[in-house]
Design a binder for these strands. Structure first.
Lengths: 231, 231
DNA sequence: ATCAAAACAAGAGCAGTGCTCTCTCAAAAG
DNA sequence: CTTTTGAGAGAGCACTGCTCTTGTTTTGAT
């Protein structure tokens, strides 16, 4: 049928409008912080405030969309940066992941705060966000899985992991890292926590007047984590 | 002089009023989250909103006072709980610190978010907060210092620490842990970051649907950190 | 081509917010 | 006893998220 479009023109301008609102909201987020004003966004867009509600049911809905985008942006960045490293360079791959996360966070501290800072009061993460949130940590999972199948994890009897912990750890690694010993998976999760703990400390100002050489400190600590995990 | 008081009665009721405002604000924080309403606090106090400004110059000032109190409350709790453990039980002391921080955070997640979550937009930490914020980590410093003077840190040549990192690490440990090798201090800082990273993940919901056995997971990871540091 | 339905934006309005200013009154200080 | 000081009340300003109504435009089927 002539003129038949997979997505009507109306749907397309709607998508563009939605994207523009999010872009302006992100800019406001970068300058004004977390207390995002819908009315200010509407003003910047040259539209009356109530018009925004055609695209987002509430301010929290807008924030949720930004959160989803942020998770995907971070995940994409991490995936890309890690893919650029030779598959055999396990430590290099881990360091690339660390660097990617930190770089992403330092470039957009407010978006980082949106996803890894205090959650907004009444906010409950919808199902789609958990998939997006998983992308980054999945990359770490493939690294330790690759290390396991290549038999490059340190030998020796693994330290014991309590049953309750082993259960959680196995579920976490079941799909992406099934050949990794529980103790190593547990350590990898610990390294993951340390990565985000350190970045949060840096972004949220907890390192002020304590650590001056941020780059070197971060690299040293994350390299130590690589050794701790065994990659 | 008869009736002379060290602090006038007027100053005392003012202090009581200030404390009551903070108490109500804390209650509101616990229920409504971070967007604290001055007017709501005033209503609960049975007073008109402008009256609050006799005690706090702005909403941010109130929040700053709550932040200071939170740091001191956490510091006090950690100090008390760690003091209750035998001096020779280094691992026990570390675990007591971890448990104290986590327990404190889980009991008042919003106050935790106030000091370790995303900072409020225009907020700059005043000098008094840094002193209060130091109390908790100082306890960890004394633990590794005690380990060092008792020669209970693992022997062997310490791993090399880059100069830039060593500079930061030495400054951090200069006063409280001067006898600890740089590599160990660096690892202790890493453990500290991991402690707060894990608690933040738990309080902020990042562990949902991932870790079910929270207590066991936390204990296992923190015990691993103790071994990592060497205590 | 016509026409009803749907989508859209505008505007007014409501309840709430942080904060300022003025006014009044009671209590402390001299 | 007078004067100064501090505290609370109240009105008001500019702002917020959100709702509802009112015209206007676009769409899709007749």
């Amino acid at each position: 049928m002539y003129g038949m479009k997979a997505t009507g023109i109306r749907a397309r301008v709607r998508a563009e409008m939605t994207e523009e609102i999010k872009a302006i909201a992100r800019r406001h987020l970068a300058t004004d912080g977390a207390n995002l004003s819908l009315r200010a966004v509407a003003r910047d867009l040259g539209v009356v405030s109530s018009a925004i509600y055609r695209y987002f049911a509430s301010r929290d809905d807008l924030l949720t969309a930004l959160i989803l985008d942020a998770y995907n942006s971070l995940g994409q960045t991490v995936e890309d940066r890690e893919r650029a490293v030779g598959r055999d360079d396990l430590t290099g791959r881990w360091m690339a992941v660390c660097d990617a996360v930190r770089g992403w966070a330092l470039e957009r501290p407010h978006e980082y705060a949106l996803i890894y800072g205090s959650p907004v009061p009444g906010y409950q993460a919808p199902a789609d966000t958990v998939a997006a949130a998983t992308r980054a940590v999945t990359v770490l999972g493939t690294i330790i899985q690759d290390a396991a199948v290549a038999r490059r994890l340190p030998p020796g009897p693994p330290e014991p992991v309590p049953d309750a912990v082993a259960e959680d750890v196995r579920r976490a690694g079941a799909v992406i890292a099934p050949d990794v010993p529980d103790a190593v998976t547990a350590r990898a999760l610990s390294a993951w926590v340390t990565l985000f703990g350190l970045i949060s400390f840096e972004v949220f100002g907890q390192l002020n007047n304590v650590v001056e050489h941020r780059d070197e400190f971060f690299e040293h600590q994350m390299r130590a984590q690589a050794r701790f995990v065994g990659i």
